[in-house]
Design a protein around this nucleic acid. Structure first.
Lengths: 234, 234
DNA sequence: GAGTGGTCTAGACCACTTT
DNA sequence: AAGTGGTCTAGACCACTCG
């Protein structure tokens, strides 16, 4: 099992600090040669390290050493930039698109509205230390947020909800699963189609226990770990 | 991008119900031939479907269609068999090993005890509908559980804690990340080395807020989704 | 324009599972 | 004994990135 040995060798270089977070690895052909193997086998090792979250890929750009993951607490509402800041990271959000449209099947079922009901859809791309790490899609019930599209999306949605509409996030139902990145989502994250990813789906309630929106978050899976504290319910 | 097309084709067959949960796919060579491609390319498609949680592999046995994932709520203490039962699934736990030993570095740091302190280590393998889905390793502080090894491990640990020691799980700190299966863990799960996995680490507290144990759970990543409700803390 | 990663081909051998 | 999946080789072409 060559590819396991190669994986361990690269792993050691990372642990020893020879390859620091963010560093680009040498070209695949060079690595393959230095490990005395072919590209196919080498790529198997790299894919394994990617699955473990030690390396990540930028499509057609090469392989990089993963930074420390962001600790993400779904029970904590602070907005993304602040969450990052508290962990000594720099965050930034880019608006991809915001529009009124018929709810997708998944969104309609989460929000418990009839299929094809009109909802706002807001797509955003978030960066951590200038690396794109998550594509967030919100589906928002227009009922609670009239004329949402005329507002500015420069601040966080939670802030917008609170300051413009007096709506306060108070409860969230979340679901975490693993998946892979495809199509536009992959492109925004500069990822190769099929890269492993973490999907966080959230259904958010306001202070009166009304469902106000839901969101789908496609994370580069090495960029976060979900971390929380829970009182046990039984 | 052939492998994406193949992936979609197989996906459709699953969605259409032609390939039902638990079904074994035809041999790789046959699939490759029927899609008019080579095994390498076909395996790329299969690996993608594995990453998405649609298929899983049993080492040297072939590819299978994934069953519906178990919904796993980390804030819910009911033991594993009961959690499964509530979702109409059959669960079973096998004891792999139980012994007193020096804490591993990871365990010592979680439990906040000096490295190499003696702790109980209990390894168990859990099945869902007769499929091995998770390897659970508990590191238990002997301080609260004298003579633990003399007890029977046929019931759940939570039950054992409560009935034999009056210790009640009341709070848990959990962390979810993605990783891959290697070595013994992979073997117990009948997985090929490097299969994608979900790692759930928990640090458990009793009714007096004492840390009593921690555990590492290596899940076949298609077998669960983490799902919970949270009151927002701020 | 050179080099790189993404994708693909057409084989091969081995150890293991299955028949 | 036959067939299967796991692993590996030694190439190839293309579209893209980067200097």
């Amino acid at each position: 099992m060559q590819y396991l040995k190669i994986m361990e060798a690269i792993n050691e270089q990372i642990d020893a600090g020879l390859l620091a977070a963010g560093n680009k690895l040498p070209a695949e052909r060079k690595l393959a040669e230095s490990f005395n193997t072919t590209r196919v086998t080498l790529r198997e090792s790299l894919a394994l390290l990617e699955a473990e979250g030690k390396l990540y890929r930028e499509d057609r750009r090469g392989w990089f050493v993963s930074p420390i993951p962001l600790s993400y607490d779904p029970t904590y509402t602070t907005n993304f930039p602040q969450m990052a800041k508290e962990q000594g990271r720099l965050a930034r959000t880019e608006l991809i698109d915001a529009k009124l449209m018929p709810a997708s099947r998944r969104a309609a079922s989460l929000l418990k509205v009839p299929p094809l009901s009109e909802v706002y859809r807001v797509d955003r791309l978030r960066f951590l230390d200038e690396r794109p790490v998550v594509v967030v899609t919100n589906f928002i019930l227009p009922k609670y947020f009239p004329d949402l599209l005329e507002k500015s999306f420069t601040s966080s949605l939670t802030t917008l909800y609170r300051e413009e509409y007096g709506v306060i996030y108070s409860k969230t139902r979340y679901r975490v699963s693993t998946t892979s990145l495809l199509g536009d989502t992959a492109q925004h994250l500069r990822a190769t189609a099929g890269s492993p990813a973490m999907l966080v789906e959230r259904l958010n309630y306001d202070q009166h226990d009304n469902v106000i929106d839901c969101d789908l978050e496609y994370w580069r899976h090495d960029a976060i770990c979900i971390e929380s504290m829970a009182q046990l319910s039984k």
